[in-house]
Computed example of a mutant assay.
Amino acid sequence: MRRGAAGAGRRRDRAVRAHRRRHTAQAQRGNRSPAAGYTAGRQLARLADVTAVFVANEDMAIGALHAFTEAGRRVPDDISVIGYDDIPAAAHLAPPLITVRQNFTAVDPSEVP
């Protein structure tokens, strides 16, 4: 009886690891420019299971939006794009960019790189 339980536990562990490999975020590096966002967006647009991206800043998010649109991935229907910085231009994109606003005046200066 114990051997069967141990085997089931190992099968479950393998299944969990396989699930995590398929559904774990894949970080892409960039230099915070629209061109870097576009390059990363082109790579991610080829992956059908990617349904959302969180981008380091809005300039990169704008590049990613361009890449997804060019690849035929509809934002926000096929893929969600979330930016960071809340630049004024984000509200004027089509579709408007979902963004995270950071109140830098409320942040301890020693915590900001």
Rank of each mutant, 00 (worst) to 15 (best):
T51V: 03
G4T: 08
F104N: 11
I79P: 00
R22E: 15
D85K: 01
Q43T: 08
P34S: 05
A5S: 12
G63R: 01
H66T: 03
T24E: 15
L44M: 13
A18N: 13
R2F: 11
M1A: 07
L65F: 01
R46C: 07
G83Y: 00
F104V: 14
V16M: 13
A64G: 06
N57W: 02
R3N: 06
R46E: 14
A40W: 06
L47V: 07
I87N: 12
V81F: 03
G72L: 02
A52K: 03
T105F: 08
P95F: 00
T51R: 00
E70L: 15
P95E: 01
I87R: 11
Q43M: 06
D86P: 00
H19E: 10
A36K: 06
D59Y: 08
S33K: 04
P96T: 05
V112R: 11
R2H: 08
G83F: 01
T24L: 14
V75S: 04
D13M: 14
A56V: 03
D77M: 02
I87T: 14
A64I: 08
F68W: 09
D77R: 06
V112S: 04
T99R: 04
I82Y: 00
A89K: 07
I79A: 00
L47G: 05
A6E: 10
A52Q: 13
P88A: 10
D77H: 15
P113L: 12
A67L: 13
R74S: 04
S110T: 14
R2C: 05
R17V: 05
A35S: 09
A56Q: 09
A35P: 05
Y84T: 10
P96L: 06
G9L: 13
R32Q: 13
G72I: 02
L65Y: 01
R101A: 15
D59E: 11
A15I: 08
I87D: 06
V53I: 14
A5R: 14
R11W: 02
A45P: 14
Q102G: 09
R11A: 15
A67N: 05
E111K: 09
I82D: 02
D59K: 05
Y84W: 12
Q26P: 07
G7D: 09
R10F: 01
R17I: 11
G72Y: 00
A45N: 06
A36P: 03
R3D: 09
D59Q: 09
R22F: 03
R32T: 09
I79Q: 00
Y38Q: 15
R21A: 14
G72V: 02
I98H: 13
V81P: 01
I87V: 13
A56K: 01
A64M: 06
R17M: 09
Q26N: 09
D77L: 03
N103D: 15
A5P: 02
A106T: 10
R3L: 10
A15R: 12
G83M: 00
I87C: 12
N57H: 01
P109R: 12
Y38C: 12
S80Q: 04
D59H: 09
G72A: 11
V112Q: 07
A36D: 10
F104R: 04
I87E: 07
L93V: 01
A18E: 15
